[in-house]
Design a protein around this nucleic acid. Sequence first.
DNA 1: CCTACCGATCGGTAGG
DNA 2: CCTACCGATCGGTAGG
Lengths: 196, 196
Amino acid sequence: MAKIKSGNNTTKKEAVLEKAALLFKTKGYSAASMRELAIALGVEAPSLYNYIGSKTELLHSICFKIANEFFVNLKKVENSTDSSIAKIESIIRFHIQTTLSRFNEVYVANHEWKHLKEPFFSEFLNFRRNYEKRLIILIETGIEKNEIKNLHPYVTVLTILSAVRGLEFWHGHKKNVLPQELENDMVSHLLNGITK
Amino acid sequence: MAKIKSGNNTTKKEAVLEKAALLFKTKGYSAASMRELAIALGVEAPSLYNYIGSKTELLHSICFKIANEFFVNLKKVENSTDSSIAKIESIIRFHIQTTLSRFNEVYVANHEWKHLKEPFFSEFLNFRRNYEKRLIILIETGIEKNEIKNLHPYVTVLTILSAVRGLEFWHGHKKNVLPQELENDMVSHLLNGITK
DNA sequence: CCTACCGATCGGTAGG
DNA sequence: CCTACCGATCGGTAGG
């Protein structure tokens, strides 16, 4: 009997991935057990292995799916003809929107990836460093074009990425802040701080 | 034979706490085993229990020690006669300095506290919420006094706290950024974004 | 998708 | 500070 629910557009594997993201976020990857995941899906633990290969594979799928989406967006922005500030704004908005709409997966990709096994751990780390490096180049270009204040580009990127990543922690605390208001005010804060 | 090293000013328990903070940060609380901690200290696992009560007690000690230090600083700032902007600046600088100098402990207090057992989990959560709330009041006061831009105070606090917390992740990537330069540029970015 | 089960590892205790 | 050890739980497999 197929107990794992899967809607018209989701495979059973996707249903497992969705619950896994929630569980990994809530308890942390190491403290989350496959038995808990099975219970959440209404099956016995061994049954999970009909859909997935291993616990670490679940983590891998979540992390690289999210990483890929951020990279696709980055490439799109890089290839646009916008000003540097507009490019940075676009990236900040993408981070905020994706974090708010894909909360569990983004959290896992940002905080649990250190539990990836090699060679995936190193691969993911390189992903991050490359992403960061390309943002630094965007900032440097903006400084050269006199659009952006001459702060250390690395620090600027760190500040921006850290700020948007923080949404994973605080989201939901305040129901009286609308997502759109949050997005606009955070963008305003982060851009006003560096716009010349 | 006393194998756990302890300098003149550190008890053995403090030596254990220091190694525990490093281990909890590197592997995460759940994935870090007491056997690994023992090896790092050059003793057998059961010997640890001569100095500490339990694994969870180590986590508790680290988290509440750091939380207390941040609170002590907050109270000092609240009681000062500085402008609102100067108060916020002071708090940002304290976060950056403490994070850079007490890397492992601050990381654990910020990211592993969710593994605290009740009632300490709730107590710590209340600590955080209270801290956040009091920063919001500082921001609100600054807005009323026309020192600070009228963005949503909650979003402003979230942005600032998230940005400084991000230092735990990125610290050490770039040797070519001096701590003082990092601090000044991040302060500049975060304050310029909200100063009226 | 289940029952039955395995080897490994965990935090911690007993006793010295 | 050690040796010896325990009950619990882990990820995962065998076989159906």
